[in-house]
């Protein structure tokens, strides 16, 4: 429960003496959904039961809050993204809300994924530089130039009749191509950007869905 411990009034701190008031928004989702004030806490939690009680989920009480832990949720588990969390009911005047504080390893990993792919891109650059500087590289380049010219291929008459474009002379292109090295870092850069977008989409979408599911469960509707 490292991601969701602490008390109702005092939020959890990751390390003693270190407060993370903003940074934990990366992997934590907090919020509230209104509930029918006529509903007792027992009844409200009973309605949330189908959402929480899936195979492998460990439920426990933490003061007045209900804590859950899903070490390895199935793909279709409605709370698969949020593997740990706490839920409790707060009453204010005549109304009441269900508050939630959820932890998502998936969001955290997705947030960190761009770093991994930037790392791969940098590795590609470093390996290219290292290979270009090695004495073997010059030898190989010389060998490449000494290769016998490739013959110009011809299409089969059937393809000529059907109008397929003829193959190019393979020896022509050689001068245009610059030796940029064995690996391209571009994919790593693109994918770092891609995972940043996936993270933002997930950080927006998953809280919306969790709110919707909690609201539906509290209203007694089947989970969507």
């Amino acid at each position: 429960m490292s991601g969701a411990s602490g008390t109702l009034s005092a939020p959890r701190t990751a390390m003693v003496g270190l407060s993370l008031p903003l940074i934990d928004h990366i992997w934590r989702v907090r919020g509230a959904v209104p509930i029918d004030p006529a509903l007792s806490p027992e009844e409200a939690f009973a309605r949330l039961d189908p959402l929480l009680r899936t195979p492998g989920t460990v439920l426990s009480t933490d003061g007045e809050a209900l804590a859950y832990d899903k070490p390895n949720p199935s793909a279709q588990d409605k709370l698969a993204t949020f593997t740990r969390g706490r839920l409790w009911i707060e009453r204010a005047g005549s109304g009441a809300v269900l508050r939630f504080d959820l932890f998502s390893q998936a969001l955290l990993m997705c947030f960190l994924a761009p770093l991994l792919f930037l790392g791969f891109a940098q590795a590609a650059v470093a390996i290219n530089a290292w290979e270009a500087s090695s004495p073997e590289a010059a030898e190989k380049a010389a060998k490449k130039d000494a290769d016998k010219p490739k013959p110009v291929r011809k299409l089969n008459p059937v393809d000529e009749f059907l109008g397929a474009p003829a193959p190019e002379d393979p020896s022509k292109k050689k001068d245009e191509k610059k030796d940029k090295g064995r690996h391209s870092p571009d994919e790593g850069y693109y994918l770092a950007g891609f995972f940043a977008l996936v993270y933002l989409a997930g950080r927006w979408l998953e809280p919306v869905l969790v709110r919707r599911r909690l609201r539906a469960a509290l209203a007694g509707q089947p989970a969507t």
């Binding site: 790593g188 995972f195 998953e206």
Partner: peptide, 22 residues
């Protein structure tokens, strides 16, 4: 497809396009 499944699958595809290709 859920967001988590999509992100997980995309990670394997991305690994194939970078590290595994190298």
């Amino acid at each position: 497809l859920t967001w988590k499944e999509f992100a997980t699958d995309a990670f394997y595809v991305a690994l194939g396009m970078t590290f595994l290709r190298m």
